[in-house]
């Protein structure tokens, strides 16, 4: 395990990501920021907090998506972890949705998240924000806003850690076994 970004670098990456979001957030449509569990949820929460401070005029909805039921790679596991509920208690019809995830790699999570979102309504626009883009796409999916690009060897896992979920801030590269 190797730490590739320090807490400071994570903060800079979040700042960079947030600046792009702030520049693109619309004035004339309802805005919803939706995080993909678990760390996308934390990141989305931070973005919402800052949006509320900088754009108090703008009502921003906050939701959390659990994409487990929409994944196509479920059976490649050793046991079934606990699935948590999706928390989107508002209609997505005609909203500007910012989908937030921590790491973008294959694009499969995003594909699943888009399918899940479709069950909650028909957003006008969906934009994707990823803190880390590490490449390795298996589907034609790209992020609109990226905090930082990270190079990691094939087969390695890039893991973001947040204070709220992990008690520390940083980005780590985990090589298998």
């Amino acid at each position: 395990m190797e730490q590739t970004l320090t807490a400071n670098q994570v903060r800079e990456a979040i700042d960079r990501l947030y600046e792009q979001v702030l520049a693109h957030v619309p004035d004339d449509v309802p805005v919803a920021v939706i995080g993909v569990r678990t760390r996308g949820e934390t990141l989305a929460g931070r973005i919402v907090e800052r949006l509320e401070a900088d754009r108090a005029d703008l009502p921003v909805r906050y939701g959390v998506l659990d994409i487990t039921f929409y994944r196509d790679d479920l059976s490649r596991r050793r046991g079934v972890p606990l699935v948590r509920a999706t928390e989107i208690d508002f209609d997505l019809d005609d909203t500007w949705v910012l989908l937030v995830d921590d790491v973008l790699q294959t694009g499969r999570s995003v594909r699943a998240a888009l399918d899940a979102l479709a069950d909650f309504g028909r957003p006008r626009v969906v934009r994707l924000a990823a803190l880390i883009d590490r490449g390795g796409r298996e589907l034609p999916i790209a992020a609109d806003f990226v905090g930082r690009r990270v190079d990691a060897p094939d087969g390695a896992r890039v893991q973001v850690r947040f204070q709220e979920t992990d008690g520390t801030e940083g980005v780590f590269i985990l090589t298998q076994d």
């Binding site: 659990d66 487990t68 039921f69 929409y70 479920l74 606990l82 699935v83 948590r84 509920a85 999706t86 928390e87 399918d115 899940a116 069950d119 909650f120 309504g121």
Partner: peptide, 22 residues
């Protein structure tokens, strides 16, 4: 674990599209 998983599925039943592709 079953009870907590059922808790998550209760949410599915409150959606307008009461269906997931699991």
């Amino acid at each position: 674990h079953i009870l907590d998983t059922a808790e998550s599925f209760k949410e599915v039943s409150t959606r307008s599209i009461k269906k997931v592709p699991a």
